[in-house]
Design a protein around this nucleic acid. Sequence first.
RNA 1: CGGGACGUGGCGCAGCCCGGUAGCGCACCUGAAUGGGGUUCAGGGGGCCGCGGGUUCAAAUCCCGCCGUCCCGACCA
Length: 489
Amino acid sequence: MADDKKLPKRSEDFSAWYNETVLKAELADYSPVRGCMVIRPRGYGIWERMQRQLDSSFKDTGHQNAYFPLLIPESFLHKEAEHVEGFAPEVAVVTHGGGKKLDEPLVIRPTSETIIYAMFAKWVQSYRDLPLLINQWANVVRWEMRTRLFLRTLEFLWQEGHTAHATEAEAQEETIKMLNVYRDFMESWMAMPVITGMKTDAERFAGAVRTYSCEAMMQDNKALQAGTSHNLGQNFSKAFDLKFQTEAGGTEFAFNTSWGVSTRLIGGLVMTHGDDFGLRVPPLLAPIELVIVPIWRTDDDKTRVMEAARNITATLNGWERRKTGKLRVHLDDREGMSPGAKYYEWELRGIPLRLEFGPRDLDANQCVLVRRDNRVKRTVTLDSIGEDVADLLSMIQTDMRVDAFERREANSYRGDISYDKFREIMEGPGGFVYAGFCGSGECEQAIKEETKATIRVLPDEEFRSAEPPMKCLKCGRGSVAEALWARAY
RNA sequence: CGGGACGUGGCGCAGCCCGGUAGCGCACCUGAAUGGGGUUCAGGGGGCCGCGGGUUCAAAUCCCGCCGUCCCGACCA
């Protein structure tokens, strides 16, 4: 009984649970530099699967990958007034190069709007060059004061899409389209349901006309902004002289959009699905979907069991499914480690399905399948093992999404509520509160100061209440919009 | 930058009050037995006790200074 192997109880200290789970499951480690993070192979494997799926969605929507420089002239940042104001406090600046002080400092990109639209300006001449649909996979640096593994690190990996369009309407359509690409990915692949909607001015991206966001609920009932999509209007095209000749022969500034998701998604995955035994990774994102743990007593058994286990592994590894490709199977043939110890380890890592196989099973032509999501065991025959495993995995994917959805709904509050009740919720268990909003920044600010809750989004139509709250949560005046309030990461 | 706590093998900690030359658990290495939910026994390696100075015959321990980390606020994907 090694106590230090156990994780803190999620219900007692969610933050401690989160940190220890991420470290013990070996997703990441701390770096020598404060606030930076080392993503270990297990964490990176999940990120690679995320990348692959997102990237193919981007290709499907006509985007091409490109790469832009890490270093940006400081003056670029200053060309868009709101943008520099938003990002200046958190940029890292390079002042020396080649042993000499630079004439103009270079900033390490906190995001790439400026350098990308400077390049777009060179590439675009006529409406025929539009739309220009670009995505880049990159790292960015933001000098945050307080950091947290995956959720807020000084440096993080992300993808940022940048597009230029001939019309406002087309840019708006793109903004919403990519928001929905994110939403589909988060719900279908991460099994993490999200609320989409527009941000208020207070939370809008610095330099955007409109910002849209996907907001997920974590298990401590706090919100996580999981992905954003911005309609930049002509703010950047004007700043970087990104204009084109129209079909009619006139000159017009292009309309831009940008959108991104980051390694923060991994943190969201952990905080959405983890339990007291560690990670739970949805099958579609799991680098290993099924782990086979062989069991034996005598050397004789060992030989027979291992041989059969290798055969099962070979069969399953080649198993082709209709949509999700070949099964990803791993045989845990480590010796000198008890089966129980292996179970705990694989559970900590969140592998969705475990196959236990011992002498008794061998004789009966069967095995035991154990789901990671609910830890339910089932004895099944080996005759149809491929189908059974494939079915179980897709069931796990669905069940995890439904679980997360139901948890979110159980912690959501709708309809007019008193401000006292609201405070009680925010200071107590937390949750998503759908409440009226008069549209005044003063009410928004006052609530933030008093309860730490912010308007996550003004929810899209499908998330709004059947009978929307009529009164502003704070001032009691008639509301102009329904707002989703929550404390956030 | 304000308020609090803490720096001791890879990790987590005890020792400090009351000075005497460093210990525990886990991890790691070797051997044997074990193996259907965190095995057991035996043996072993590894530590400028955050850094610098002071007091003392003697400092992990007392005093001063510095550095660093974490938590709470201001910032934020």
